[in-house]
């Protein structure tokens, strides 16, 4: 174990940091884009079908194919990797955000209107907070999925731990391959727990009703 860490420790650590950065950019940008798309749908309901169709098709395209299609345009670069990664988060996030906003009870919306809140105030103070549990659920799935997909970006020269795994595979160093895999799974579990914790912090009223 100590020998293993001496040999591969710094390589795995670099891969891990790179993996976290790639994931964070993808989920961050994906979240912002998905929020915009969701708000567009909420405002103009007619947009729901085309937006869901487009994000759904993006979601169906295999990752290796999507990265391959991007290479002639954006090259073997971080941009190619991120465009691919972001496009896979959109369907998951839009679906959950929309379900969250649609799930706000009608009488609560009416109460907000009755209190004289503007549409924007109602969104920020009432609807979004109540949608938090489903938004967090979407973020959890998107994040864990992205952590796995980052591995595939190794084929276009990115990849974080995927790069480490690919190197291990090419050199037939199986301990390095499994090391990279275990690190990735631990990262996925840690990210998931972090998001669960964040969700709890953002919805203190749920905790109160739970303990009552």
């Amino acid at each position: 174990m100590i020998g293993f860490l001496q040999r591969y420790g710094s390589e795995l650590a670099d891969g891990l940091v790179n993996h976290v950065v790639l994931t964070a950019i993808a989920v961050g940008v994906g979240f912002a884009l998905a929020l915009v798309l969701t708000l567009l749908i909420v405002r103009w309901r007619r947009l729901e079908t085309p937006i869901v169709a487009v994000t759904g098709t993006l979601y169906t395209i295999p990752s290796l194919a999507l990265f391959a299609l991007l290479v002639p345009i954006t090259g073997l670069s971080l941009t190619s990797a991120e465009i691919g990664l972001v496009s896979y988060t959109l369907l998951i996030l839009v679906r959950n955000m929309l379900a969250g906003l649609d799930g706000v009870p009608a009488d609560i919306v009416e109460a907000a209107d009755g209190m004289g809140q503007t549409r924007f105030q109602r969104l920020i103070r009432v609807e979004l907070p109540l949608a938090v549990p489903l938004i967090i659920a979407g973020l959890r799935i998107a994040t864990v999925t992205t952590i796995g997909l980052v591995m595939v970006t190794a084929v276009i020269g990115e990849g974080g731990l995927g790069q480490v795994l690919l190197r291990g595979f090419n050199l037939q160093h199986w301990d390095l391959v499994y090391g990279a895999l275990v690190m990735m799974i631990l990262l996925a579990i840690a990210a998931d727990l972090l998001l669960v914790g964040t969700g709890r912090l953002l919805t203190p009223w749920q905790r109160r009703t739970a303990t009552r």
Partner: peptide, 14 residues
């Protein structure tokens, strides 16, 4: 389907 059970990922359960 409930949104909490979102679809598995495109690449599968990547």
């Amino acid at each position: 389907s409930p949104a909490g059970l979102a679809p598995p990922s495109p690449q599968g359960w990547v």
